[in-house]
């Protein structure tokens, strides 16, 4: 019996009778991070990285049954050893290491190598079998260092100030928004959407310091400011209130011009919280895994590539369907 398998409910560990990031309601769920396509409603009991517990509660409700473990600390379920290791994806994100009778599997959840200033830095965890995400599983994705893009973003903000415009950046409210807040060279007031504000406050409790920011209230009239909105914030009627704006989007998909023009924003910044192609290949090498399961994204391309390199690689279907970047 394999240590982990795919079931309609999600990744399942039969020996421990527990699911990893299940997308249907189950009894016991181990959660890799607080994004809503990984931490879902309805589980009887949640187990999560300690630093993500408050983020998950903020999203799923205060009264859920949840227990947190710090990175690197083992916990046991029916003789199976589990531990969380930083995934570098967003604050509180983890890879999940599973060990049973000397066999080690690692599920990456979502991950990236680059140290972004807000997420606990990633490190590879050696294993026999690796389940890796491949959201950006095409060689056309080669991330540049984030300093490059944050400098560009800063210059763009300054230019917009000269033209008397507000600068709007669309970014996921958890993770990307904080990464921008932390790294953009400030040159004026920064406002954030209430959804972003909530996540930022919890992140601050984890000991991360940000430049000064303000929650965007109905009566605020930002001028020449930076405003961070979740992608859905665009249609909020909020934009109208902001007057003359330039809109930018921070997402790995912005690395492809076609995707960028489809999103109809003025500027795209390919800043991603996922590994690029080389990042995935490097992880496969670093973990020395003999078997690789690819999930989330375009597994077919990665699987064929690894197979041709002599690895035992297989696709694990499209586990998570939402596109995020």
């Amino acid at each position: 019996m394999p240590l982990l398998e795919v079931r309609p409910e999600g990744i399942y560990c039969p020996a421990a009778d527990v699911y990893l990031d299940p997308y249907r309601a189950v009894g016991k769920a181990i959660i890799s991070h607080a994004h809503s396509d990984h931490a879902r409603w309805g589980m009887n009991h949640y187990i999560a990285p300690l630093s993500s517990v408050n983020l998950i509660k903020a999203r799923l409700g205060k009264n859920i049954s949840i227990v947190g473990y710090p990175y690197g600390e083992s916990f046991h379920i029916q003789g199976v050893h589990f531990s969380f290791h930083p995934a570098g994806h967003i604050p509180g994100s983890a890879q999940i290491r599973v060990e049973y009778k000397g066999e080690i599997w690692v599920y990456t959840g979502d991950f990236k190598w680059e140290v972004d200033g807000v997420s606990e830095p990633f490190y590879p965890v050696p294993c026999h079998t690796l389940i890796t995400e491949c959201t950006f599983g095409f060689p056309v994705f080669q991330w540049r260092k984030q300093e490059h893009w944050f400098q560009k973003m800063g210059e763009w903000w300054q230019n917009n100030q000269i033209e008397n415009k507000n600068t709007v950046v669309l970014a996921y409210s958890l993770g990307k928004a904080q990464r921008i807040l932390k790294n953009i060279p400030p040159c004026g007031n920064i406002y954030v959407h209430p959804a972003v504000a909530e996540m930022t406050e919890i992140t601050q409790d984890l000991g991360i310091h940000f430049p000064e920011w303000k929650k965007l209230d109905a009566k605020d009239k930002p001028e020449r400011s930076l405003i961070i909105l979740p992608p859905s914030g665009q249609s909020d009627g909020l934009l109208k209130r902001l007057g003359d704006v330039e809109i930018g989007m921070a997402s790995g998909w912005m690395g492809v011009r076609g995707k960028r023009s489809w999103s109809a924003v003025d500027r795209g910044f390919p800043i991603s919280d996922h590994a690029d192609w080389k990042g995935i290949i490097d992880l496969v090498d670093a973990t020395q895994a003999q078997t690789i399961y690819a999930t989330h994204g375009n597994p077919d391309v990665l699987v064929r590539y690894l197979t041709e390199k002599g690895k035992d690689a297989r696709a694990w279907g499209a586990l998570f369907e939402r596109e995020e970047g």
Partner: peptide, 18 residues
């Protein structure tokens, strides 16, 4: 692999640049 990339990106000049 190059053809897969081209199909994904949709523009040959950009694919080659990436």
């Amino acid at each position: 692999l190059m053809e897969e990339c081209y199909a994904f990106v949709g523009d040959l000049a950009e694919t080659l640049a990436l």
